[in-house]
Simulated scan of single mutants.
Amino acid sequence: MTAELITFLLLGALAGGFINGLSGTGTALFALGFYLVVLDPVTAVAIVSLMSVVAGFQGLWVVRTAIFDNPKRLLRFVLPGLVGVPVGVWLLAGLDATILRYGVAAFLIIYGAYFSFRAVLPAFERPTPVVDSCVGGLGGVLGGATGMSGALPSIWMSLRPWTKFETRAVLQPFNMVMLMTTIGLLFSQGAYDADAVRAILITVPTGLVAAQVGIAVFKRLTNTGFRRLLIGLNFVMGIGILISELTKVG
């Protein structure tokens, strides 16, 4: 391994691990920017997916009580999401993924910019099991078609008046299940070769340490502060997706 490769792997692991510990989502956005400089796209996605899942177990431990307090809420998102992933993969053959990503990016930017500057956030307090299931299913479809499974769930959860532990108890397990599905598909395609394993030996330990720092910051956030963090991350994700697509076009 070259010094350049190791440097970019470490930087990506630090950025991705920290945001994983802080919010439970957005890992790929912050890590792939570094990984794609020195790795091919398939290997980069394979590495960041595995790092996200391994580091994510630390976040699950932090919110374990909230998960077991309301497992039905989590299942309302996860089960439709699992159904949605293969649907998204199937639709990918007939969809223009680039146009879809542009649309999602525009929505994230408008949504994030609008709600970031509102003094009072909206709060959907009543139970919405049907909407929850639809959001989970659509998140799975987007994950299969574009790799953005967490976009819609994070938007919806940022509008719910749940505590930060309740929100993360749904968002992080949802993302991890979708990522584990991705890992299985990539493994079957031979993505985890010797080069990927060597990179993983660097990124996973670094990501684990960085996630602990993120978790420490998460514990200091207020419930409203965490909701605003998710909204801000959606805005940043929208900008990141837009830049990546414009770069491809250029």
Rank of each mutant, 00 (worst) to 15 (best):
I215Q: 05
G214K: 02
Y102C: 05
I19P: 01
T181R: 00
W61H: 11
L100I: 13
A3H: 15
V53H: 07
A199Y: 01
F115T: 01
V78P: 00
V63M: 08
F77K: 01
T2S: 14
G17F: 06
F115V: 03
G33Y: 01
R76A: 03
F68K: 15
A196H: 05
L171D: 13
L10F: 06
G144W: 01
S188V: 15
M176N: 10
V89T: 12
K219D: 09
P205N: 12
L208K: 08
T128W: 11
A3G: 13
F34N: 03
F226R: 04
N234W: 07
G184V: 12
S23T: 11
P173S: 07
T224G: 12
D193A: 09
G56E: 02
L171F: 02
I109H: 08
R76E: 10
Q172N: 12
V131M: 13
S154P: 02
G140M: 06
S23D: 08
V37A: 11
I109C: 09
L74C: 04
I6S: 00
P127F: 07
G143I: 06
E125L: 12
L179Q: 10
Y35S: 00
A97F: 05
V48Y: 04
E245F: 06
F187E: 09
R228Y: 09
A145E: 00
I241T: 07
T203G: 05
L39A: 01
V120Q: 15
I47E: 01
M1I: 11
M1L: 11
A145D: 10
S244T: 12
L11S: 09
T65E: 15
F77M: 03
P173W: 01
A216R: 15
L11P: 08
F165V: 06
V131S: 09
G184Y: 12
A13Q: 02
L201T: 09
S52C: 04
V120L: 09
A123Y: 13
P80M: 13
G112C: 04
A15I: 07
N70A: 15
G250K: 12
R227S: 03
I183Y: 07
P173V: 00
L233H: 00
L186F: 03
G112K: 07
G81M: 05
V120P: 10
L36P: 02
D40K: 07
I6H: 07
C134R: 05
K219C: 10
C134Q: 11
L108E: 06
L50K: 03
W61L: 15
I19S: 02
T181C: 13
L208Y: 10
F107L: 14
F57K: 09
S158T: 00
F30K: 05
D96N: 15
V85S: 04
V38W: 02
R220Q: 11
L221N: 09
T25W: 04
I155N: 03
T181D: 00
T163S: 12
R101S: 07
A3Y: 14
R198W: 09
A105V: 09
I110F: 14
V78T: 11
F124I: 14
A211I: 09
T203W: 00
G144E: 04
D69F: 08
L185T: 03
P41C: 03
R64T: 14
L152E: 02
G207W: 12
M180G: 07
